Amino acid sequence: MSDTCDILISGGGIAGLTAAAAFGTAGFKVICVDPTPPIIDGTAEGADLRSTAMLQPARILLERAGLWDNLAPHAAPLQVMRIIDAGGAESEPRVTREFDAADISDQPFGWNFPNWLLRREMMTRLEALDTVDFRAGIGTKRLFTRVGGAKVTLSDESTVQSKLVIAADGRNSPMRTAAGISVRTQRYGQKALVFVVTHPTPHENVSTEIHRTGGPFTLVPLPDRDGLPCSAVVWMDDGRLIQERLEMDVAHFEDEASVRSTHHFGPLTLVSPRQAWPIVTQYANRLNAERLALIAEAAHVMPPIGAQGLNMSLTDIATLLDLAQERREGLGDAKMLEAYHTERYGDITLRVRGIDLLNRASQAGSTVARDARAAGLSALYSAAPVRKMLMQMGLGMR
């Protein structure tokens, strides 16, 4: 016998859990599955130690999903985005520019959260919703669709019949593959090293992105830890170099990270394990198939620059939610899903290409390319209308 629901969500990462909470709160009957149970303790083995900056528009969706009130006490506001070019002969700042949210809004750009904590609060919300059935340890296996609905076979050989299937199952999405949707992929030879540090100088709610070569070194504010200012770090560089740093002894690694940070907040002290992730750009050639919608990394993957990745995913969810509430009787039909593709695809491809260009600029190794990058940063910043437009575009307000 098959279970039935309005929406089956394949994938229980942050995007999948947010979608489950949003659609469940809106009154849809949801089944969400993921082959890997979420780790909701930051000290547990395998915990996701990355952090996510939720930009202003994301808060609206989190409120609609009943998540914001529980997340707010853990938020580290991001009031200023500081960009430093350190591409000279020595690893020291030569151009520093700050983008202040106060220039365009009475709110911060966004709020930063550890990923494991997001999962914890999202799981708590799902447990309170009688409209959501979350099944850990179970994945999706086969997809069969017809005009009137979809039938999905799960990894335990049970089946679910639903009006809409949402693929939130990652860059190697089994549901996207089952639907025959192809992707375009660009590799850079980079990896991102992620870890958490404390430092003597307060970050003052400033997210700092330092460019030299190989990729940016970004420090994103977190709440104080053991009485010391604390930041999440994403260090992008050539994959071979990242692997070497992953294996360094702690003292040597702290010294190298402090130098790469230009000692901006003083010496860095490692307070978490290190994890590495490959950097790619990838996007699906379509966001929909019969009874299927792609969101998050099933739809688009990009380098972690400008906090665009998950925030684009949340825009995917908000767009689908609006369409679903407008068309409850036609949930998951061709008209709804074509509207979803049309509304999101142009924005996704524009942002993917923009982040690709920024990443290539951040990799610059030659003196000429580094100087051009520094000059470009100064030119963009000096024109106030352009500066404001870039901030608004980064937030998804334009």
Rank of each mutant, 00 (worst) to 15 (best):
R260F: 06
G354I: 11
L323K: 00
N288C: 14
A296N: 07
G346C: 13
I242S: 03
A276T: 06
Y345N: 11
V271M: 04
R360N: 02
T281S: 15
Y345D: 10
V234N: 03
D249G: 05
I355Y: 08
A299N: 02
I295N: 02
G346W: 13
W277F: 15
V259D: 03
P273H: 04
L294F: 07
L320I: 04
Y283W: 14
H263K: 03
L350H: 11
T342E: 08
S366T: 15
L268I: 10
A276L: 06
R353V: 08
I295A: 08
Y345A: 11
Y283T: 06
E244S: 09
M248R: 09
A284I: 05
E329L: 15
R286T: 13
M312Q: 14
V259S: 01
Q282D: 02
V301L: 03
P303I: 10
T262C: 15
E329F: 05
M302P: 01
H341K: 11
M248K: 02
A293I: 05
A299P: 05
I279L: 14
L357Q: 12
A284R: 05
S272D: 00
G354C: 09
M248D: 10
A284M: 04
T349I: 15
A293G: 08
L321K: 03
D347E: 15
R327N: 07
F265P: 01
G306Y: 07
G354M: 14
R240S: 01
E326T: 10
G365N: 11
F253V: 08
A307F: 03
